[in-house]
Computed example of a mutant assay.
Amino acid sequence: GGVAGYVTGRDDAPAAAPASGAVPADLVAAAARALPGVVSVQAGNGSGSGFAFDDRGHIVTNNHVVAAGGPITVIGADGRRLTATLVGTDPSNDIAVLRVEGSANLPALPLADPRATRVGEPVLAVGSPLGLSGTVTAGIISAVDRPVRLGGTARRTAVQTDASINPGNSGGPLINARGEVIGVNTAIATLEGGGSIGIGFAVPIARARQVATDLINRG
């Protein structure tokens, strides 16, 4: 407002361009980059989201998405239904790794440098809230290293975001404006009645990557 007042108050100043209200182009590109590697996960009576971790068919999701047991199916952005096997779980960090055949060719999402994550930077939560696959919501990083309980009773640090996260987003990626994964969406704070109130949490990618790598190496 101050800038607009200054510009329009000068006789020799050019007219200010109208605000377009458009979503920044980098977020559009980030969403396009991430969506092909994000999947819906169905495990018994549970459901959530996940993303391709590497080019060998490994998919990262939340432990609580698959904890109920039963056959696991992942559904790609192109609608393909793929049978997945459970590689391993880490309940204390709420991380699980699945595997589909490498021939599925799910594009692995790039992982962010955790040292570059900053409070206030724009982010996108990608997943299947309420079964609506390929849903993207935008927000910012509200806090880093927020102590919360994820899975077990011990407190773990998490990335906090105000991007809308709802049931079904669990296990999906939280990405930055470059399309890089900065966290694994895992929990939300709610008031009576449930639903997103703009306080969501993601497992930081440094810890998620280490846990996933350990689970894969252990087979």
Rank of each mutant, 00 (worst) to 15 (best):
R209F: 03
G195C: 10
R218N: 13
A19G: 09
D54F: 05
R207A: 01
V65L: 05
G183R: 06
A138I: 09
G172W: 14
P129L: 05
A206Y: 04
A25D: 13
R81K: 15
T186G: 15
F201N: 14
L35I: 14
G168T: 06
A158I: 06
A32T: 13
V100L: 10
A177D: 11
R56M: 08
L111E: 06
L174E: 01
G127I: 01
T83I: 04
I141L: 09
V23I: 15
G9I: 02
V184D: 10
G44N: 11
G102D: 06
Q210S: 15
V126A: 03
L109Q: 07
S40G: 13
T213P: 01
V74F: 08
D162H: 12
T85S: 14
R149A: 14
N63I: 00
S170W: 12
A52K: 02
A13T: 10
F201S: 14
A187L: 10
G179A: 02
I165R: 01
A154Q: 06
V181A: 04
P24I: 05
G139Y: 14
V7K: 12
V126R: 05
D78N: 09
S142P: 05
I72Q: 09
I72W: 12
N93P: 01
T73G: 01
A84V: 03
G120C: 08
R207S: 07
I182W: 00
R118I: 04
L124C: 01
A32V: 08
V23P: 13
V126C: 07
D11G: 07
G48L: 03
V159P: 06
R178N: 15
V60H: 02
S164F: 09
L132Q: 13
G9K: 12
V126N: 02
F53G: 00
V74M: 02
A30Q: 04
T186P: 07
T157E: 06
R209V: 04
I199M: 12
R218H: 14
P36A: 15
V3D: 11
G69V: 05
N63Q: 12
P18M: 00
D26G: 04
G9M: 05
I216S: 00
L98G: 08
R156C: 01
V38F: 10
L150Y: 05
S49D: 03
E180G: 04
P110R: 13
R218A: 13
S40T: 13
H58T: 04
G195M: 09
D162Q: 07
P129H: 11
A29D: 09
A143K: 02
